[in-house]
């Protein structure tokens, strides 16, 4: 079979030629390029990918204001209980083994021309809770709104106030609550989807103690 395909020439015995040296140098540069590119890709992914946004979210200590372009937010209070009372109605009991947690923040708008979306989730130990859909904060306290509202019920511009949300979580999870994660975005649906994503969202965990 050797006539079909002769063996590759034995290059180990001879001294490396100039061409071989050139090849070795460029091979080394090539592998270094691969290594650097992989590292750059991983770093860029960790720095920019939406998936790791929560890991990148900065922590804002309790009582400290968190300033973004459109709004400034400060944790006001976090409280929990097994019962909530809506004025004029019977008390609402939490399901067995669960409690209601209410989080209230002060917000101050930089300008009232943009529509601002403020999303809130309750942050525990490696897990989060969305606000309960069956109970809105403004049902409990009419002066506290559910998002960073820019107009009041009469349509008049407002520059700030208090916003919050109610969560229903397992009672055993109360000790692990460390604050709320806030996501702030400028919403502009007037043109098209692309204008919405010209602004990346701001994200931070506003620390607080549940009392």
């Amino acid at each position: 079979m050797s006539d079909l395909y002769p063996a590759a020439p034995d290059t180990t015995a001879a001294q490396p030629t100039r061409h071989q040296k050139w090849r070795h140098r460029w091979t080394l540069i090539g592998w270094l390029t691969v290594l650097v590119a992989i590292l750059a890709w991983c770093v860029a992914n960790a720095a920019f990918a939406v998936s790791f946004e929560e890991q990148r979210a900065k922590s804002v200590s309790e009582g400290t204001a968190w300033q973004t372009d459109p709004v400034t937010l400060t944790m006001n209070m976090m409280t929990y209980g097994s019962t909530v009372t809506i004025p004029g109605q019977d008390p609402i009991l939490a399901d067995p083994n669960t409690v209601f947690v209410a989080a209230v923040l002060d917000y101050s708008l930089t300008n009232t021309t943009d529509d601002i979306a403020c999303g809130m989730t309750l942050v525990g130990d490696g897990r989060q809770w969305r606000p309960t859909s069956s109970l809105l904060i403004d049902q409990l306290v009419p002066d506290i709104v559910s998002g960073c509202r820019t107009i009041d019920n009469d349509g008049n511009p407002i520059t700030g106030g208090q916003m919050g949300a109610v969560f229903e979580i397992p009672r055993s999870a109360v000790p692990e609550i460390r604050g709320v994660e806030m996501t702030v975005a400028i919403v502009d649906l007037s043109n098209n989807w692309s204008s919405l994503y010209k602004h990346r969202t701001w994200i931070a965990v506003l620390e607080g103690t549940v009392e």
Partner: peptide, 12 residues
């Protein structure tokens, strides 16, 4: 979608 957010693909 992964780098900018949901619906970014539709915008593109």
């Amino acid at each position: 979608g992964a780098l900018v957010g949901t619906f970014a693909d539709a915008a593109f």
